[in-house]
Design a protein around this nucleic acid. Structure first.
Lengths: 205, 205, 205, 205
DNA sequence: ACTTAACCGAGACGGTACGTCCCGTCTTCCG
DNA sequence: CGGAAGACGGGACGTACCGTCTCGGTTAAGT
């Protein structure tokens, strides 16, 4: 999170923390407006009212800057209010996730960092920690509730349970992302209902 | 399929199909060697033994060229041999798709163009036409076979059938992509078996 | 003048003389509008309603085409009406020449071919024959009239007479061209009067 | 004199005067070696050991660069040493100017930019500023000397004096240029003597 | 209050790739 | 076979950013 890898200093003028803030904000704005590919360091500097040199003193490359700027967007976690049934819970999380993905800044930012992570292992690890794993608990929570309601059986083998949770997570997140960004069609209530029905059918079998 | 967006022409020297072929091949080679970021139009032209102008006559941008170049890989790889049962067919296509996504050039190129398409509608349309819609036929084919085998019931309402096919497609493709690129874990036989079982369970319900 | 250096032909479709005319006219129009530097073969072809191939069948290069196109402009000769005195005759020819140089097509064309002739000896010879030498007779005619009027003495030595005529020609033409194109100021009656006075003073001395 | 049309600046890294020098020198060298037509900005930049962008920061086009590069030659070559008499001074400057025009790079470059300037006012202004007006001082200097020697009378009216100086300048420069480039004959001592005699005769009258 | 060292803005620098324009040549089809 | 159309290989163009490097000027900590 801290942008500056600079060594311990004692004397001289300290770096302006105002600049850090302005730069990250400008980066997010530029990302939404221009996309990853058209985003330029010079443009970010100009938006932030800062010299290009100041950017390069703090971040070594465009990638590092953008990842830092984007990380904050995913700090808010998805909630999972208890809607009374497994079907309703799944529909709810699907619709919430889809709403998040339809906001241009999250959509662009997510795809940008995922795309970049195919070439950058450190980035992939960072994404897993910051984004993916944090949402996986929703699956665990939803299963627990369904089991308490008697909608799903308890799984004895803990490793099998973990494997199933991973599978469900990939299926839910993957289907929503794919429909939204690749098929480029809206995730509406009807689609959510059909998807939830399919998934619950599979889980019961 | 045809790379050129040029309108129907009748007069003048026709475009060399040899050049088309050489360019797409060169693009794939460059993609593997250099990766998305270092790939340049000039380099592709040189590898193809073709002038840069010839390239720009056919593709308006690097993105569109790469989409077409990668699309061919999907066509080659994603066949659906009849493996005797719905379970086996699903496992097969999942494993083939995952193998494709684990090749660096496909993975990188696909995610890069998808990321770019979040900001470029023309590119999104091209991706749908060149890649997505073409693979949807596998879903239709698989369902048909399963119905002939008696593994799945026939759906009377054609629009409901189409909606279901779209859903299945997003679920399959999304889950594989998400596990591979976001969760960053391997799609092995075991995962494929679990996923296929889940899906078939849902379909039967 | 004949554009085509093609060998004797007997068979096949004869070349369209209409095309020759249209091409030369289009070349002149393009020269005025665009200047030598911006004139392109493709543009000339398009203006003439002709294929680029047709141009190249008749002229080997841009230079040859433009020189042929321009030559016609200088076919009209300057006249030298007898205005009653040497002073008036000189003023008259200066003003007529200046008027010719202020027309954009002649100005551009003349400078273009002169500039090109600094690199092309054949072109220089052609310009001398077609343009320069033809105007030199005006100097001879003016001197003759002045001698008959008694304004200038007769020169006995014919070679000295020729040398003087050449000198006068370079001085008159050079001064007008330089003022018009290099100093870029107008040749008006006042300038012509001053110039004629200077020249006559020199001739009498 | 200064190549850069950039406005007065105070901040930022100043432009390297070394680069200016190297570029102009490289331009002259390329002009001699390759001629006007084959001279390319990229080649000049490479010779000067400079990036192409550095070149474009200072000169907007090939024409303007060449004007400035050639202008320096005029400054070097066109001195006016006091040769003791008006006749000798005129002969001297005529012969020096002619020698300059017989060097291929000067001849070609000068005519090319003048030809181009018939269609480009900005270029014409630059030529006047960089070349023409700077040489006009020779006329003023020569007249002053002749007046001090008592060879020419003093002119009271300053505007008439300026008009005369302009006239003399056009006559001298025009005659030499015309004889050299249009008539395409050598300016030798004999011609210079005849021309100087003619001019002095006119001035005294 | 005075150094002094690191900061800051501005912008020039050497580079790389871009996408465009035009060249002069070459197919192809039509009349 | 001439001609219109237009694709071809090639070369230069002028632009946009990159990441680095001076500049002159500012600002705070340590004396």
């Amino acid at each position: 999170m801290s942008p500056a890898p600079s060594p311990a200093r004692r004397t001289g003028r300290p770096r302006s923390p105002e600049a850090d803030r302005a730069i990250l904000e400008a980066t997010r704005a530029a990302l939404v407006e221009l996309g990853w590919g058209k985003l330029t360091m010079g443009d970010v500097a100009a938006r932030a009212g800062v010299a290009k040199t100041t950017l390069y003193r703090r971040w070594a490359s465009k990638n590092e800057l953008v990842v830092d700027a984007v990380a904050a967007l995913f700090d808010e976690q998805l909630e999972l209010p208890d809607l009374g049934s497994l079907q309703a819970d799944i529909e709810g999380v699907v619709l919430r996730f889809a709403a998040l993905l339809e906001r241009p800044e999250t959509k662009t930012a997510l795809m940008a960092v995922v795309a970049e992570s195919t070439r950058d292992d450190a980035l992939r690890v960072r994404i897993r920690g910051a984004i993916v794993d944090r949402q996986k608990r929703l699956v665990l929570l939803g299963r627990e509730r369904a089991q308490e309601r008697g909608e799903l059986p308890y799984e004895e083998d803990p490793s099998a349970a973990a494997r199933t949770a991973d599978l469900i997570f990939d299926v839910i997140a993957g289907a929503v992302v794919h429909r939204t960004l690749v098929s480029a069609e809206r995730v509406d209530c009807e689609w959510a209902r059909g998807f939830a029905a399919l998934l619950i059918g599979g889980l019961r079998a």
